[in-house]
Design a protein around this nucleic acid. Structure first.
Lengths: 337, 337
DNA sequence: TGACATTATGACACCGGTGTCAGATTAGGA
DNA sequence: TCCTAATCTGACACCGGTGTCATAATGTCA
């Protein structure tokens, strides 16, 4: 099997390689006859252009990077799924790059990544999406980027998000409608902008239903299962015990559930628990968790698609989108008796 | 910021670009003085060679692909972590490629991937590691590949595995030592070679402890949580009910646990449950699952490292390694009363 | 010191595409 | 029918590295 290059195609079709290149890139100024002739040779020889040679000539790599630092494997996988879908569609490759937000030398780490891998652009997923140092670094270096699930909107950059505040509002209101008034809240990791958004939604729901906010019901978590255990311990020992717990994600909610079960509390009869994200664990435990589902794949896919479009044609003006989050009710919530 | 290329380095250092290239690749036949002079210029100009140009010249992409089709997000993430570690170390990039083993046109899908992305090699993770059609395709196309967690050993290819059969043996024996004799078994997905291996280990443990194998205690699963629910239903309805259940992975074990809990069975007092893989869920549920931990990251890292080494220097003879699996005991198993 | 082997270096083509520009061909209008 | 404008096409340089080979510099030994 010998290699099929643009030269072999050109000589086989009896045209110059530049003409072949024109056909390849759908450029104008090729007569229909020539175009078809070349296209036929493509098929006959089973020709695939070499992206590396192309990249060298155009100073592009056809690679975009995906940055994440997230304890939730399912979230990461969903992000990857969305990003890959967009990449496949637009003939790009995806380079995944897990790294720590608070790791030393984040910026130089990223700079090195961009330098060595010659990324054409970067997708930022939480918590990077709202990390100012990084965003302004990319902006100063003129590296195209897109932000997924960011809270802060900048109008000159690509950003696709879902409404965390609204989701938190809705799930809190769901509890309130079930008669709950003492609703504990476990916060997420302070580096994630979602943390503040979800907290805001919680407070807005309380306020709009005339329930006074009680600071003693709020615990600091960090989205990890482990932090959920710690927070749960404090909350479940409160006297009087709250009748419901809203954990800022499903892992922490699962931790609350585990601890409650260990303490012989029945969920949802004795206490209702809700999470956020609709992670697989939400339906893998008993009782299943009432939670908020976000369209993570969809968000990432749109963000990456936008990003690649922008790279290929910088005229394309970047835009912002907000997608819907959805309440999923399972067995972990019930009306107060 | 203007681009720093091999030409700028060469003229700045007062040598030819070929000499710069020599220094870059640690080739011999460069005098120490020249070498140092060039290295100093590297630093001064902050030069990073362009992998794309390099790739074009050497007909390499410095990219290896990672194939998977696995319902376990944590397994996928662990695989990626290991693969990335090896890639970073050896200046390679990783292209992840989730795809369905039984999807239509798997082979042509992979062929297309290799064609368009010009992969230098491929890592196969379960269930691809032992999929003969794919392996022989890669072999016929002379695409370097490495297999992770494969059961079948071929001596002319790279393969890093852990001993599933032995792990299953040990965890079964753990149950037997606790006094269990009626131990139900839920099989994994038939496409995964681990499925048969784990089953073998289970049977060997029974046999070596003089317990007769009872076919009625065996259910067909497919590694998914959902299949675990189905199998659990059958098993927990058996009369007499087995005193222990060995599910071939933790998701299915979690399903058994969920169903048992719903049926008011106490775990481990009424029934012991064990899983396999040591997935996060094993410690996120209550009671935590006794299971077998495999060094997935380590396996993948070694496989990828081997693979890249082999690509860079085909003389390097491929090798096979088997790493240790480890029993993790948690709260889901107890001595029979 | 001369003859020869060894080491160091650079000129140049090449990898497989794309950009520029000039020249050839065709179309359209007078 | 001729002239000009619009459309096609190809020659050639270039992207940033590496491979080959010739030549220059140095080392070795008689």
């Amino acid at each position: 099997m010998k290699k099929v290059t643009i030269n072999s195609v050109a000589s086989y079709a009896g045209v110059s390689k530049k003409t072949v290149s024109r056909v390849l890139n759908n450029e104008p100024n090729v007569s229909d006859a020539t175009r078809e002739k070349v296209l036929k040779v493509f098929k006959e020889l089973d020709y695939t252009p070499n992206p590396i040679a192309r990249g060298l000539a155009q100073n592009r790599s056809f690679i975009i990077g995906c940055l994440y630092d997230n304890p939730s494997k399912s979230y990461i996988t969903r992000v990857q799924t969305g990003a890959l879908a967009a990449c496949h569609e637009l003939n790009y490759n995806l380079l995944i790059h897990p790294c720590e937000l608070r790791g030393e030398e984040l910026i130089s780490n990223i700079e090195h990544l961009i330098q060595t891998s010659r990324l054409d652009g970067i997708v930022l997923t939480p918590p990077f999406s709202d990390f100012p140092e990084l965003v302004s670094f990319l902006k100063s270096k003129k590296i195209p980027y897109a932000r997924v699930a960011s809270a802060v909107l900048e109008d000159d950059s690509i950003s696709v998000r879902s409404n965390d505040e609204q989701g938190a509002f809705e799930i809190t209101e769901h509890l309130i409608k079930l008669g709950h008034k003492e609703i504990a809240f476990i916060k997420g990791h302070p580096d994630h902008s979602a943390t503040e958004q979800r907290f805001k939604g919680y407070r807005r729901a309380l306020a709009s239903n005339g329930i006074e906010f009680d600071e003693r019901l709020v615990e600091e978590g960090n989205f990890s299962y482990h932090s959920g255990v710690d927070s749960a311990r404090t909350i479940l020992d409160l006297n009087p015990r709250p009748t419901a717990v809203f954990a800022s994600n499903d892992y922490m909610a699962a931790a609350v559930l585990k601890l409650a079960t260990q303490m012989q509390l029945r969920v949802p009869d004795d206490i209702s628990i809700v999470g956020f994200d609709n992670a697989p664990i939400a339906r893998h435990i008993w009782p299943g968790l009432t939670t908020i589902a976000q369209p993570v794949e969809e968000m990432t896919q749109q963000a990456v698609k936008q990003l690649i479009t922008h790279i290929s044609d910088p005229q394309e003006s970047p835009y912002q989108v907000t997608l819907e989050a959805k309440l999923i009710t399972r067995e972990s919530t019930a009306a107060i008796k």
